[in-house]
Amino acid sequence: MTQLLNPPPSADSNQILCYFANNTSQVQIARISNIPGWFFERVVFPRQRLMFQAPPNACLEIYTAEMVSSLLCDRINCTRLQVESLTSVGSFC
Rank of each mutant, 00 (worst) to 15 (best):
58 A>F: 06
17 L>S: 08
49 R>N: 13
28 Q>D: 01
46 P>G: 05
50 L>G: 07
77 N>F: 05
29 I>R: 10
39 F>L: 15
71 L>Y: 04
76 I>W: 02
30 A>G: 09
65 A>L: 14
10 S>Q: 04
55 P>T: 07
2 T>M: 08
84 E>I: 07
14 N>D: 15
72 L>D: 03
22 N>S: 06
70 S>I: 00
49 R>M: 04
68 V>S: 02
14 N>C: 02
88 S>I: 03
81 L>F: 13
11 A>P: 03
29 I>V: 15
30 A>Q: 00
5 L>G: 00
4 L>T: 04
93 C>I: 08
13 S>P: 14
18 C>I: 07
43 V>H: 03
46 P>Y: 04
80 R>N: 14
23 N>M: 13
79 T>Q: 13
67 M>E: 12
21 A>V: 00
58 A>L: 04
93 C>W: 15
74 D>G: 00
42 R>P: 02
69 S>C: 12
26 Q>P: 00
19 Y>A: 11
45 F>T: 02
76 I>Y: 01
51 M>V: 12
32 I>T: 04
40 F>I: 05
21 A>C: 03
69 S>P: 02
82 Q>C: 12
12 D>F: 05
42 R>L: 09
52 F>T: 05
64 T>H: 08
10 S>G: 05
75 R>T: 15
11 A>Y: 01
34 N>S: 06
54 A>S: 13
87 T>F: 04
84 E>T: 06
20 F>R: 01
68 V>C: 00
60 L>N: 08
49 R>S: 11
92 F>E: 14
16 I>E: 09
17 L>R: 05
75 R>F: 00
56 P>N: 13
41 E>F: 00
60 L>H: 06
7 P>M: 00
53 Q>E: 12
2 T>N: 08
3 Q>L: 15
41 E>R: 09
32 I>E: 03
3 Q>F: 14
18 C>D: 11
60 L>I: 06
59 C>S: 04
62 I>K: 07
57 N>D: 15
86 L>G: 05
16 I>N: 06
7 P>T: 07
76 I>D: 01
37 G>T: 06
65 A>R: 12
65 A>P: 07
75 R>D: 00
42 R>I: 02
23 N>Y: 03
67 M>W: 11
27 V>D: 15
62 I>G: 02
13 S>R: 15
32 I>V: 12
1 M>H: 06
80 R>A: 12
6 N>H: 09
31 R>N: 14
37 G>E: 08
22 N>E: 02
23 N>T: 11
83 V>Y: 03
90 G>E: 08
88 S>R: 07
81 L>S: 12
28 Q>A: 02
63 Y>V: 10
82 Q>K: 15
53 Q>I: 01
10 S>V: 04
9 P>V: 10
18 C>E: 09
71 L>A: 08
4 L>Y: 06
51 M>Y: 03
74 D>N: 03
66 E>L: 13
54 A>F: 02
17 L>N: 06
37 G>H: 11
1 M>G: 09
1 M>Q: 01
69 S>N: 10
18 C>P: 07
55 P>A: 04
56 P>R: 15
19 Y>I: 03
83 V>D: 07
37 G>D: 10
11 A>Q: 12
2 T>F: 15
57 N>L: 10
9 P>C: 00
25 S>T: 04
59 C>I: 11
26 Q>C: 06
81 L>Y: 09
23 N>W: 07
45 F>A: 11
28 Q>N: 11
34 N>F: 07
62 I>S: 11
12 D>K: 13
82 Q>T: 05
2 T>Q: 10
